[in-house]
Computed example of a mutant assay.
Amino acid sequence: MREFAATDGDWVRWKHSFGSGFLSLMVSFREDHAKPRLRVRHDVVEVDLCVSVRRFEGLSGARLTARAVELLEEVLVSVQRTTSPPCPWFLGRTKRECEAGYSRPERAPEPRDITIVPQPRLMSAAEFWRRVDEHRLPSPRPSAAGARFSERCRLLMAGLDTERHRACGESVLGFISDDVWEDILVWLVLQGERKYHRFVKDEAALVKQLAVFEEREPEFDGSWLAELEA
């Protein structure tokens, strides 16, 4: 789907119009269904979709993968109402799915009911960096202060989440999956304000710091940030 969105005309035009923002789809599969949750924070749109595995009973191959994509498209139709300009909803079909008779529907699917999560207040930059310098990070459980800290942290992470910075990362660490890259971004922000701004501007400084990450922090886990937002 990512490859499709990178070349499809509708998605390319939307990405250009949406500027530096991005759309994140996080999908989990569980026994029971849960209502999709949508967060719009600054120029980032995040969708958490929990799908019941029961919806895939008896399916395999192209029927199974096409059904998973259709579920995502139903959610994207709802997301369209929250982005400006409205994001596309079609996510393409693989060659195998096309051979099995799946193609682009003639019209958009019915939108899914979705919960819109209010955007928390943003912690001031001064307070955020003071907490980082004093190693006073929020405990990994939901709280108002934790949510404000997380909002500021993610805004700063976006400053490093570019193709140029990721290419620097992969020049040192090799292929980096999305979840590991997010951990790395959290770690870079937590190095402090002075270093953070240097990483944003200076690729050599970033490469040097990532070499430290590879040597000293192989077990770093940034998942506590997600726990603050639960």
Rank of each mutant, 00 (worst) to 15 (best):
M1A: 14
R2V: 13
R2S: 14
F4D: 07
A5M: 13
T7L: 04
T7F: 04
D8E: 13
D10P: 06
V12I: 13
S17P: 08
G19K: 12
G19Y: 07
L23F: 10
S24W: 09
S24R: 08
L25Y: 11
L25W: 11
M26W: 07
S28Y: 04
F29I: 13
E31S: 14
K35I: 11
R37N: 07
R37K: 15
L38S: 05
L38E: 07
R39I: 01
D43I: 06
L49N: 07
C50P: 01
V51G: 06
R54V: 06
R55K: 15
F56Y: 14
G58E: 09
L59R: 13
G61S: 11
A66T: 00
R67I: 05
E70N: 14
E70R: 13
L71E: 15
S78G: 03
R81Q: 14
T82E: 15
T83P: 06
T83G: 11
T83N: 07
P85C: 10
F90L: 05
F90I: 04
G92N: 06
K95T: 14
K95W: 13
K95F: 14
Y102H: 01
P105G: 03
R112S: 14
D113Q: 06
I114H: 05
T115I: 11
R121Q: 10
M123P: 06
E127V: 03
E127L: 06
R130P: 01
R136S: 09
L137S: 00
L137R: 00
P140F: 01
R141S: 07
P142R: 15
A147Q: 10
R148N: 10
F149C: 03
S150H: 03
S150V: 03
D161K: 04
E163W: 05
E163L: 09
H165P: 03
A167S: 12
C168F: 04
C168I: 12
E170A: 09
F175D: 10
S177L: 10
V180H: 12
W181Q: 08
D183Q: 08
V186R: 04
V189D: 03
K195W: 07
Y196I: 09
R198S: 15
R198N: 08
F199S: 04
D202K: 12
A205P: 10
A205D: 09
V207M: 05
V207S: 04
V212S: 07
F213M: 09
E214H: 11
P218L: 13
E219S: 11
E219G: 03
L225S: 00
L228E: 00
A230R: 09
